[in-house]
Design a protein around this nucleic acid. Structure first.
Lengths: 140, 140
DNA sequence: GTTTGCTCCTCTAGTTATTAGAGCATGTAA
DNA sequence: TTACATGCTCTAATAACTAGAGGAGCAAAC
């Protein structure tokens, strides 16, 4: 079980050094062993856990959701409905964001097209944003 | 110019009461008039400004970008290239986010489809998150 | 053998955009 | 007049880090 320093753990896992310490502090990562000189030594299991966390973060999971997933991972006899539910919730959120970002993209494009490159008084960028009734997407 | 209380301003603009006070504090909103009893009175122009800010926030603009837009709005003799540039920058950001959210949506769907609703030990949701090699999108 | 430079340690404070709460004053309706 | 809502200021919390101060340890070059 080759143990590595925090810098190497960071390089291997892709999680930055201060972030690793932060994860330890908030209990997402178990407190690692230390050298005589009080330096952290990370085992393979820690590196896997870090990779898991990083991957989850990339997918937009919040730390609380990740904490829940890790708890499930730590006792694998549990039924997986909870993990499924967390992923589904994520998916719902992602799809909501996708919808509003698409509306936004449309509006920004329209704004940029509409801008006659004159002065602000005729510039639709501000007009559209200031005047709610000119807004194209209807979810608000 | 009918003036309204902060609560009504919140109801009309859709910006929450503490948030309105916060915007005032950071100088995004001018200090409003006060009653004898030291209560804020918001004029129509304030309400429009709040709607503008809220709308910008919904569109994903950061407060600094909004501050820049408001500054342009406040002196409309300026050319609108700056506002145009801000909108274009935003559009780029939005399109980047759209791309990564779409990839994410795909992966989450795959994870959820793969979940056999058994125990955590066979749950693909966790498995996929733990095992990088099973990850479909290749941007990391 | 010591100096250079990198990595590590802890601790505190900063970031963004709010939100929450304490403790008190004021306005409105029954 | 007695509730109860709404307002005020101030401080502190939230998420998820990031940055910096001030100091110690380690490896290699000179």
């Amino acid at each position: 079980m080759n143990e590595v320093s925090i810098g190497n753990a960071a390089r291997i896992s892709g999680v930055k050094v201060p972030t690793i310490r932060f994860y330890e502090e908030i209990g997402l990562l178990p407190r690692p062993a230390r050298t005589n000189a009080n330096r952290r030594l990370f085992a393979d299991s820690d590196l896997r856990r870090l990779a898991f966390i990083r991957h989850c973060r990339e997918l937009g999971f919040e730390l609380d959701a990740i904490r829940a997933l890790l708890k499930l991972q730590d006792n694998p006899k549990e039924p997986c409905e909870a993990a499924d539910a967390i992923a589904k919730e994520r998916l719902g959120e992602v799809e909501r964001r996708l919808r509003s970002l698409k509306a936004l993209q449309k509006e920004l494009k329209r704004m940029i097209d509409g801008c006659s490159h004159g002065h602000v008084s005729q510039c639709r960028v501000i007009e559209v944003l200031a005047n709610h009734s000119k807004c194209m997407h209807d979810n608000h």
